[in-house]
Structures are given as C-alpha cells and as structure tokens.
Amino acid sequence: MIQHFPPEALTAYHKQIFFLLFKRLSSSKTTKYVINLIVFFCMYAVKYSANQLVSTIDGIQAQMFGMLLEKLLITELQKVAGNVDRKIVACGITKLLCDCPEMYTGAYQKYWSPLLQALVAFFEMPVDESTLPDDHFIEVDDTPTFQTASAKLNFANSTKNDPLEAVSEPRQFLVQNLSTLGRSQPGRLPTLISNTSADCQRILQQYCAKFSVQLV
C-alpha cells in the first residue's frame, strides 16, 4: 500500500491506519502478523521518514513508539525472513537510528543502543523460527481454499518486487548512515555505540573496515 500509493493520497489516513494495525496486534499477536507489521513500519520509515513514523505512532498515544520498540522492533526483529523483507527492515531500522533525533537525542535515546545491537544481530544471526503464543489463531489468508494446479504454479513462479533496489548491501548502508550521523553530532556516536556489547562493537568495526567507512 505505502509502496504504490502517492504519499499525498494516504497522508490524511495514516493515524487511522496505524490505529487499526495496533488494534489488530492487541487482539491477536501472531508470528505472521508481527513480521508483516515490522516490515510495514520499516518501509514506512524509508518512504515517509523515521520522524513521521514516530510522530504518527505517538499521535495515537503518548510514548507509544517506546512500547513498539520494546515489544516488537528490538525483541522480534530476528523473526523476519526473506531477502527483500530483511533489506526493508535493515534500511528502516537504520533510518530510525540515524535520521530520527528522538532516537539519538530525545525521548527514545535509551533505546538507540539496544536497537543498534538488535540490528547487528539481525545481520549476523540466523532467522528466529520460533512462534508466538497467539499462533493458534488462523490467519484469514491461511484458511485452506481450493486452488488449481496452474494457480499454484503461477504463484510459485512469481518473484517479490524489491522497492529498495538502490541499496545493494544493507550493512554498508548502516555504517555509511552511522558515519553521517557521527559527523552531524560530534562526540555523540562513540558514546551511543559504547553502550552496546563488545561483540556488537567488534562487528561494527569489521563492517567499517570492509566498506572503508570511518565512524567518529
């Protein structure tokens, strides 16, 4: 939806759309829905902006974005699978880390380091295939229906569109954006990174060396 509609067509409805998404989440937190919601929010951050994502969610309820970080983005990120969806998520989280002052200087600063650490783990660790307790609910599009052999074949041959083709390497995208953030906020980035684990810092150094990026 947000990929194909022009931004001005949906702007007036963002808050209502988000409200319905959170209402569905509160009634049935299935693994499939959580994954799709993470991808949606990250795509929103890329297409509209990380700032708009935060302000829209907090417009529903004060400090609600903090709950999203705690309960979804930091804890369930590893469940996202598929190359295209993982790229969208990596870029969306990078936008939150690097383009959103509320994250690195504002109300959500305490989540910056855990979110970066979650993103590095997202790159380095295998997909988390565990399921959530609400998975006993049947998703509407999982309900068995009759399909012809040709319909199944057509579906199998389809490929998922990549809306972020310009980003070839999400890890490079991360360190390049971190570098830009560091230059715009002198002295702040080393402090933020120092609050991550030693493993996270070591892996970031490897990314920087691999892509010839310096963090200051």
Rank of each mutant, 00 (worst) to 15 (best):
M1W: 08
I2G: 05
P6M: 00
P6T: 05
A9K: 06
Q16K: 11
I17L: 12
L20E: 11
L21Y: 01
F22R: 06
S26T: 08
S26W: 09
S28L: 06
T30N: 09
T30W: 03
T31D: 00
K32T: 11
Y33E: 06
I35N: 02
N36H: 10
N36R: 10
I38W: 11
I38Y: 10
V39L: 09
F41R: 00
M43D: 11
V46W: 06
K47L: 14
L53T: 09
I57A: 03
D58W: 03
I60N: 00
Q61G: 02
Q61S: 07
Q63N: 13
Q63K: 15
Q63P: 00
M67K: 11
L68R: 07
E70I: 14
L77Y: 06
Q78L: 10
G82K: 04
G82N: 05
N83P: 06
V84L: 00
D85R: 07
C91L: 04
C91Y: 02
T94E: 06
T94G: 00
L96Y: 02
L96N: 00
C100S: 07
P101V: 11
E102L: 05
M103K: 08
Y104R: 04
Y104Q: 00
T105H: 09
T105V: 08
G106D: 08
Q109K: 15
Y111N: 13
W112P: 08
S113Y: 09
Q117Y: 01
A118E: 04
A118I: 02
L119C: 06
E124I: 01
E124P: 01
M125H: 11
P126Q: 05
P126E: 03
V127H: 08
T131P: 01
T131W: 00
D134F: 11
H136I: 10
H136Y: 13
F137H: 13
I138A: 12
I138K: 13
E139D: 15
V140A: 10
V140N: 10
D141G: 10
D141A: 12
D142M: 08
D142G: 01
D142T: 10
T143V: 11
F146Y: 15
F146W: 14
F146Q: 15
S150M: 15
K152S: 11
L153C: 13
N157P: 05
N157Y: 12
T159Y: 10
K160A: 13
N161A: 14
L164Q: 12
A166K: 13
A166V: 09
V167M: 08
E169D: 12
E169G: 03
R171N: 08
F173C: 12
L174I: 04
L174Y: 08
V175N: 03
N177V: 04
L178T: 07
L178D: 10
S179K: 00
T180C: 11
L181I: 13
G182Q: 05
S184K: 09
G187F: 07
P190D: 06
P190F: 01
L192G: 04
I193K: 01
S194F: 04
S197L: 03
R202V: 07
L204F: 01
C208Y: 06
A209K: 14
A209S: 14
F211W: 12
L215N: 14
